[in-house]
């Protein structure tokens, strides 16, 4: 198991490093002089030179890259061009709001997706299944910002039930959470359904029935548990998808979260903000991926044993016993 964890951790670090280098390089191609962004219109040549010196903008690419990575490892993300304030605290200040909405959205999406997917699979070809399949296809293919606008149109403009923008009260959170939840549930439903359909025809499900197990337990502890690996992958992808797509949803609902922070950076050409925002989102995605990988090992004992989950001693003991007894299991 330790080997598995270490392997995943190494993957995670390598992925992150590659992402940082790639993003940093990408930002190099952003046109315009950063000094102009800092100073605004009407900057004098002397000021521009001074800023270049202060921000060490004239250093070679490789020097700036290694300085950036070095600082990043220590948790220093540098300063915003626009506000001249450190980026890291500003980013972390916006994190709770984004996380709250993301986590609730994913939780609702997962619960709805799992229940709907399981029922849909158990009652395959029923009216419920057909309607659900249509809805989830719609939910999975509609872009999140479009869905968000549709919700605003219906619940704010037509019905007037919920506020469209801001993040002051719980009421403000309903629409963004619903948007994320619906999208997540759509893909989770689809994966749960197809994974369950495959599992439910397996011989071991029949074995469970032949034991006299109840339908509910057959479906949940024998069916769903075995169907869970692909579902878990989709849940992980959804969390990552939301973290990446947070910019869109947050901008529609004007939520002052991580996404909007990055978006503001884009609008004002504040490259350090954009760079660090995206790096941070990537960092969270790799953590989610890592956690999903860990969860696989807990759900599927075959993964655990591939990486020798503390069985070396046990195996050796058994081998010795087998040789002694002359018969191996």
């Amino acid at each position: 198991m330790l080997r598995y964890i270490i392997k995943r951790l190494i993957y995670m670090v390598v992925t992150l490093l590659a992402t940082v280098v790639f993003l940093f390089t990408l930002m190099e191609f952003v046109p315009g002089d950063p000094a102009l962004v800092v100073l605004g219109e009407g900057a004098t040549d002397e000021n521009i030179v001074a800023i270049h010196k202060e921000l060490k903008l004239d250093d070679p690419y490789i020097v700036r890259l290694s300085r950036y990575v070095g600082n990043l490892v220590q948790g220093d993300m540098g300063n915003s061009y626009k506000t001249r304030q450190p980026i890291a605290p500003a980013l972390f200040a916006r994190l709770p709001l984004t996380m709250t909405i993301a986590v609730w959205g994913i939780i609702f999406g997962t619960i709805i997706g799992l229940v709907a997917g399981v029922v849909s699979a158990v009652k395959q070809y029923s009216l419920f299944d057909r309607v659900l399949t249509a809805i989830s296809l719609f939910g999975a293919s509609a872009p999140s910002f479009w869905l968000a606008m549709l919700f605003v149109l219906i619940f704010t403009l037509k019905l007037g039930w919920l506020p469209a923008t801001g993040s002051y009260t719980f009421k403000h959170w309903i629409l963004p959470i619903a948007t994320i939840g619906l999208q997540a549930s759509a893909s989770i439903t689809r994966m749960t359904r197809s994974s369950m359909l495959e599992v439910i025809r397996q011989d071991y499900v029949r074995t469970a029935r032949a034991k006299g197990q109840t339908q509910f337990r057959v479906v949940v502890s024998h069916g769903l548990r075995n169907a869970f690996i692909p579902i878990l992958t989709v849940i992980g992808t959804n969390i990552n998808g939301y973290l990446g797509g947070t910019v869109l949803v947050e901008s529609v609902f004007a939520i002052p979260g991580l996404g909007n922070y990055v978006l503001d950076g884009v609008k004002t050409m504040d490259t350090p903000v954009v760079l660090n925002g995206v790096v941070f989102i990537c960092f969270m995605c790799t953590i989610v991926t890592f956690l999903v990988d860990m969860a696989y090992a807990f759900i599927d004992p075959r993964i655990k044993s591939t990486y020798g989950f503390g069985t070396k001693k046990f195996k050796r003991a058994r081998l010795a016993k087998a040789i002694e007894g002359g018969t191996a299991g």
């Binding site: 011989d203 071991y204 074995t207 469970a208 502890s221 548990r225 075995n226 759900i299 599927d300 075959r302």
Partner: peptide, 8 residues
Amino acid sequence: MTSLSPVM
């Protein structure tokens, strides 16, 4: 080979 649940 297929009649036992692999995760139990």
